[in-house]
């Protein structure tokens, strides 16, 4: 107990907590991506995967609570460190300060906050299936037949969900900020844990760049692939069967007018 208290009370100890929880979350991000990339297969593939996860409630809830605790610790450490850092420089420089620091390292709290807002939305969107936030309707009505069993149609849910342009846009923004967050955080976690010397630092930086780019491309490919028309026919059938209203703008219209004019709709 003494060790944990000492860890939490020291600024270095909190950085260890940041680094270790960050590392655990990166492992989750890789696993979550691999699971979700199954959307590029046949509809049954991801539906079966989702059904498998749901059929192991102990494992599922264990993972969920573990993740929640990890995210909670990461945020609690970040928040206390942020207030420490703020109070350490009460008077700002007229000339900016933070010489030679990269912007991704300076705005970790900003990128982190947007990612947190995204996590809340993402859970409401695809976990709680809250119809008020998805722009489509009641996702629980989407069901399909899997080996004679009626299961939630996760495939149709993803396709219909990302065919709403503002949902896809928010996901892409969050993914870009996650990329920014990780391209600094992944390397910094090695530094915080002391796993660095002059030989390993360039390799650690390369690893951070490769992993953050790979995660970004992987995650962004899902909304982009769906906007490009993947599974649109299947989803249209599923929508008709579940009697859901048509999305504000279907994949076809978004693609036809392009993302630039999609932005203009908001202005109008």
């Amino acid at each position: 107990m003494n060790l944990l208290l000492r860890l939490w009370r020291s600024s270095l100890g909190k950085k260890y907590v940041m680094a270790l929880t960050g590392a655990a979350l990166v492992v989750f991000l890789v696993g979550h991506l691999v699971g979700n990339l199954q959307v590029f297969g046949a509809p049954d593939l991801i539906n079966q995967y989702a059904h498998f996860l749901k059929s192991k409630p102990l494992l599922l809830w264990g993972a969920r609570l573990g993740l929640l605790a990890t995210v909670g610790l990461h945020i609690a450490a970040a928040f206390t460190l942020l207030s420490l850092n703020r109070s350490a420089r009460p008077v700002a420089y007229a000339t900016g300060g933070a010489y030679a620091a990269t912007s991704r390292s300076r705005y970790m709290a900003v990128s982190g906050s947007v990612i947190l807002a995204f996590i809340v939305y993402h859970l409401l969107h695809f976990t709680a299936l809250n119809p008020a936030v998805n722009g489509v309707g009641d996702f629980t009505k989407l069901t399909t037949d899997l080996h004679g069993e009626t299961v939630p149609d996760v495939y149709a849910m993803m396709i219909l969900g990302f065919n709403v342009w503002w949902v896809a846009a928010f996901y892409l923004i969050a993914q870009a900020l996650l990329f920014m967050h990780l391209s600094h955080g992944l390397a910094a976690m090695f530094q915080s844990l002391g796993l660095r010397n002059h030989v390993w630092w360039p390799r650690v930086q390369l690893l951070a760049r490769v992993v953050s780019v790979a995660l970004f491309l992987g995650y962004a490919s899902i909304p982009l692939g769906i906007l490009a028309g993947i599974g649109s026919r299947y989803a249209a059938d599923a929508r008709a069967r579940a009697h859901l209203a048509a999305a504000p703008s279907s994949a076809a219209t978004v693609l036809a007018v392009g993302p630039a004019s999609a932005g203009k709709e908001v202005v109008r």
């Binding site: 600024s11 460190l81 850092n85 933070a98 620091a101 300076r106 970790m108 530094q191 915080s192």
Partner: peptide
């Protein structure tokens, strides 16, 4: 030394690299 550093009210390291640069 770390405990004294924390007591003095310095901030934490966020690996921005400004220190090394200056």
């Amino acid at each position: 030394m770390v405990e004294q550093m924390d007591t003095e009210g310095f901030g934490a390291c966020t690996v921005t690299g400004s220190c090394e640069a200056v």
